[in-house]
């Protein structure tokens, strides 16, 4: 049987190519890289730490305002988008897309995949 890491990487592979998704990663809530489908040139550990900080900071900001916990953080730029969403209590799912990506499709796929990750990580 495949190891947990291999199964998580398999789940990420499903995302590749869907709606212009270019890279994806599973990151622990405290900023450590769990699994990634990302090019070697990216410093994946730093990317993991920064996205966890983004979502952590967003959660603190909205909950300070009494608006509860956000479902996701979407960063839009001219050269691409980054979307970070929760995947169970321990982990986050992060994807990077091309700038013109179909956000609706990407979010739908992400919610399916984050559910799988939640199950795998227990």
């Amino acid at each position: 049987m495949a190891s947990l890491r291999e199964r998580l990487e398999g789940v990420l592979k499903e995302l590749k190519g869907v709606g212009d998704i270019e890279a994806s990663a599973i990151v622990s809530r405290d900023g450590l890289l769990i699994a990634a489908d990302i090019s070697q040139s990216v410093n994946a550990e730093a990317f993991a730490a920064m996205t966890a900080t983004m979502l952590g900071a967003a959660e603190t900001a909205t909950s300070e305002l009494g608006k509860g916990i956000p479902d996701r953080v979407i960063v839009e730029g001219k050269e691409g988008k980054i979307i970070a969403t929760g995947a169970g209590p321990k982990a986050l799912l992060v994807v990077m897309t091309a700038p013109k990506a179909n956000l609706g499709l990407v979010l739908l796929e992400m919610s399916k995949v984050s559910e799988k990750i939640r199950e795998l990580l227990g």
């Binding site: 622990s28 809530r29 405290d30 730490a49 966890a52 900080t53 952590g56 900071a57 959660e59 603190t60």
Partner: peptide, 10 residues
């Protein structure tokens, strides 16, 4: 400090 709490784990 909230960020410290988020990132301090593990």
């Amino acid at each position: 400090d909230p960020i410290l709490r988020v990132l301090g784990g593990e």
